[in-house]
Computed example of a mutant assay.
Amino acid sequence: MTEIRGWAAHGAGKPLEFTCIDVGALGPEEVEIKVEYCGLCHSDLSTKNNDWGMSQYPVILGHEAVGTVTAVGEHTKGVKVGQRVGVGWNASSCMHCHQCMTGQHNLCAEALPTIIGHQGGFSDKIRAHWAWAIPLPDSLDISAAGPLLCGGVTVFEPLAVMNVRPTDRVGVVGIGGLGHMALKFARAWGCEVTAFTSTEAKADEARGFGAHHVVATRDADALKRAVGSLDFILVTVNVPLDWAALTACLRPNGNLHVVGAILEPMSISAIDLIFGQKRVSGSPNGSPPAMAAMLDFAARHQILPQVEHFPMSRVNDALEHLEAGKARYRVVLDPDFA
């Protein structure tokens, strides 16, 4: 019997409880990792509460885990015991479909989320397929690197796959856990960056994260001044917005790209898209190659999230802190098992 000790949800909306779960023998292509830090993401909260209707209980949450490889299966490749790696939103994929074979593993129909049908990183150890255990650059601070593996790649990937150019003017909507990292990445990408925020008190912080300009979304005049000014707008929030006002801020051929898990339908005028030849798109997290590229880029530019640390034994306090909107801007849990 192989047990993982961690903090598990046993039902929708219930506090996490310390739990031991038998996960069986290590698979031939799996690696086992001693968790040293694990980021807390809003997706953990959504999974805890079954907001998406696909949670499976009991589940140890946490999908931004970093640590040291302690065991490898007999058919593992490219990862060795003692290496520092990270695991993000997915723990495995089929490795033989078209998406996997073309480097888009995150779009695999059989991709296994780390915290849905699998045990996550609010634990003493975590397992993943070797391809999804991403080596960490030595120059990145491991104590803050965890959130890059989900939130970081989620906002980095659109810059690459949507062909955002360094000469583009990029807007980032929402200066939170995702948005503050998006500002850092877009600035390092070479873009002129505009932050959209409903909280004017965040303006100075947004500039510190890389924004050249800040637009207060509750200021109608400020929104009017931004009309027709941006090539690419990245939406990082998970709440309904004034979609007409945002699409108006796009230049011709502009793209409104969504990475925030907004549950309500988006009401967007076809006419607004047609006459400006504008686009609306979305993307999930990222594949192993994308995650590795993001980590290399982050190491080159020393991009890390701004984090707060909680001991893992206070995970329920950390979840309340996140749900109350008090996190500035990502939370990382430090294992403190006896």
Rank of each mutant, 00 (worst) to 15 (best):
V239S: 15
V85K: 01
T76R: 02
A222T: 07
N253G: 13
H96T: 02
H309Q: 09
G210D: 03
T247I: 15
H309A: 03
V161T: 15
T217V: 13
K48M: 14
Y329R: 14
E32P: 02
A290T: 03
P28Q: 07
V215A: 01
H63C: 06
H321F: 12
G228H: 09
A318Y: 06
Q99C: 06
L140M: 15
W52I: 13
H10Y: 04
C94G: 02
A261D: 07
G190F: 04
R187C: 08
A290R: 05
K224Q: 09
K184E: 08
G276N: 12
H10F: 05
H42L: 14
L140A: 14
I134W: 06
N255F: 05
T236F: 00
L319D: 02
W89S: 04
A298R: 04
T2V: 12
T102D: 02
V173S: 01
P137Q: 15
M312T: 09
V214H: 06
L333C: 14
N106W: 10
H180W: 12
H212P: 05
P137N: 13
E36N: 07
G146E: 10
A211I: 03
A211K: 00
A111N: 10
N106Y: 13
F196V: 00
N255G: 08
E320S: 14
A292G: 07
R279F: 14
R330S: 11
I126M: 14
L223Q: 06
A201D: 10
A206V: 01
D204F: 00
A195P: 01
D296R: 15
S43W: 00
N106K: 06
E3Y: 12
I271T: 15
R5C: 02
L223K: 04
K48R: 15
G190P: 00
H118R: 15
H98F: 11
E64K: 09
G171V: 00
I115Y: 10
P158V: 05
H257N: 15
F122S: 11
T247D: 10
D219V: 05
T247Q: 12
W89Q: 02
G11T: 07
A186C: 07
